[in-house]
Amino acid sequence: MNDFRIPIGEWGEAFVEFITEFFSPVFDVIRAVFGGFYEGVDWVLVTPPFWVIIVLITALGFWARGWLFAVGTAVGLFVIVGVDQWETAMDTLALVLVSALIAIALSIPLGILGARSRTASNIMKPILDFMQTLPAFVYLIPALILFRIGIVPGIVATIIFSMAPGVRLTELGIRGVDKEVVEAGYAFGASPRRILRQIQLPLAAPTIMAGVNQVIMLSLSMVVIAGMVGAGGLGGVIVQALSRIDFGLGLEAGLAVVILAILLDRLTASLGVRRKRRARPSQTSADSVSTDPGSTDSESVDTMPSVGAPAFQGSTHRG
C-alpha cells in the first residue's frame, strides 16, 4: 500500500508555484487594492477621538432600532474603551467591514447568476462547499505565499470563508420570489434586467439581507485566524494572549469581539426589516408583516369602494 499514493499535495504545490511565477503582478495589484482599502477605512475609524465614533455608531443604532439599542451600543463601546482595546477593536472593525464588503460585492452577482442558470448553480455549489469547509489554515498557506504576511492574506482568507452564505441566500431569495409576479413582469413586456431590478431584487431583499448579515458574522469569526497571519487588531491581541497564556488579556479582547459581533448582527439584521416596514407604511399592525411578499396580511380591508355592496374578507388561497 505504501507505494500507492495520489500526489494531490504535489499538484497543489506545483499549482501555487505556477501562479506565483506567472501571476505575481496580478496578486501585487490585489494586495495593493485590498491593503489600500483597509488602510483607508481604518484611518477613518482610528483618526477621530473615540467618542466621536461612539456618538456616530450610537446614532446609527438609534436610527436602526431605537433608544434602548442605542443605550446598549454606547455602553458596549465604552466597555471596549475601558479595557483599552479601542484601537485594536477599530482595526478589527475595519478588517471585517472591508472583507465583508468585498465578499458581498462578489457574492450577490454570483447568487443572481445561480438563480438565473441551473448549470451555474450546480457548478458553484461544490465550490462554495469547498470554500466554506476546507480548514482556513490550509488556504492561509498559499495566501501567505502570494500576499506575504500582513493584513491582506487575512482579508483574502476572510472573504473565501464568508462568501458562501451570501451567494446561497441571494440565489434562494431570488428563486423564492413569487413566480406569478415575475411572470407578470414578462407578460407586460419587461426585460429580464428590469425584472431583476424592479421585481426580483426588491422582493428577495429580506433574504439577501439575511445573507449579508451572515457574511458579516462569519467575517468576524475569522479575526483570530487573520490575527495569526499578522493582520493585527483584536485577533492579534488574542493570539498574543494565547502565546503568553495571559487569560486576562484574552478575556478582555474576546469580550470586545463579542460586543462588536452583537452590534454588527443587530444593526445589519434590522436593515432588512426596516426595508420591509418602509414598504408598507401605516400598516395597522407592523408586527404582522409577513415574510412572503405575495401573501395578504390577515388585516385585509373588508369594504369595497363605490360598489356599495358589503364585501367579504378577501380570501387569497395560494397554491
Partner: peptide, 10 residues
C-alpha cells in the same frame, strides 16, 4: 399597498 386590500380589490 396591495397587502392593505381585500382579494377582490387586489
Amino acid at each position: 399597498f396591495p397587502s392593505q386590500l381585500s382579494g377582490g380589490m387586489q
